[in-house]
Amino acid sequence: MDFILNPYYLQIVMFMAINAVLGISIYLTLSTGQLSLGNAGFMSIGAYVSALLTIKAGAPILVSVLCGGVAAGCMALLIGLPVIRLQGIYLAIATLGFGEVVRVIVLNLKITNGALGISGIPSMAVIFGKQLSEVGLSSGMGGLTLQQIANLLVLLVLIAVVAVLVFFCIRVHNSRVGRALAAIKADEKAAEVMGIDVTYYKILMFCLGAVVAAIAGGLAAHLTFYIGPKDFAYHRAVEILLFAVLGGSDVVWGPLLGAFLLTALPEVLRFAAEYREMIYGAILVVMMAFRPQGLLSTQTLRYIKEKLGRSRVNDTSTQPG
């Protein structure tokens, strides 16, 4: 408990949750085999829209975060219709270009305050703290201070968001839609012949990915006090992709694991401060050499299940892979 109450670790766990949401966003777009690097751009749309709504219009956080998601979804639909017919690396670069365009526009708009960014965004912890003290908990509860309770509440909210998204992904994965997506990922042409509306599903997943990325952006904006265009530049786009590639993009647990590891890694490597980046790079190379499909794949999940299954007495469903 001490561990999780330390604001340092708490903050890292919160960043993990945000990154997990981002990982899920890239997982959604990747589920039709599309490599999009535009999720950083959608994230910035979500972050800016929701931050501006809370500051300028005084909207509650929940509303503003959802509005951010909707805004990014509309944007994704708008650019998705023409862009979606591009494939592979072309799509990747076009979406990366979209991210750059968003960044440049944000740099030039007055309302986004250009490179100076938006500071003084009300953070979730502060708002929860206020609400708690209104209901008479200003001196804390159960040995915890008010701030600690507020922080834990924020963490709970974030975990809830991740849980809902994971649940949603698993449901989709096991549904008719999920099988259609898998078919598109495996072979687009064959899927089309089988009567699957490929364009519809591709755009659907592209937009869903954008919405989820924007929600991550909105949450992130209300976690820290400041957002600026630098937070959503090229390095962020690559980072989001890394979550999926390191963790594995076949199953939703993959990007989740990737997000956890890649958020923890820089902190773990802090003691090697100057060599941190070097180690980071080397790990990526080694990782790809040994497990290019990412840490988790369908096989590994089955393998783990098998192991677990064997320890149980009644389970006979193991089958050779």
Binding site: I89, Y275, E277
Partner: peptide
């Protein structure tokens, strides 16, 4: 091995991070 076309992308990104630092 037969790997997804994303793997070399990531692995060369790793090299680029390494070389830059």
């Amino acid at each position: 091995r037969s790997v997804s076309h994303l793997a070399p992308l990531i692995s060369t990104i790793g090299v680029s991070i390494f070389l830059e630092s």
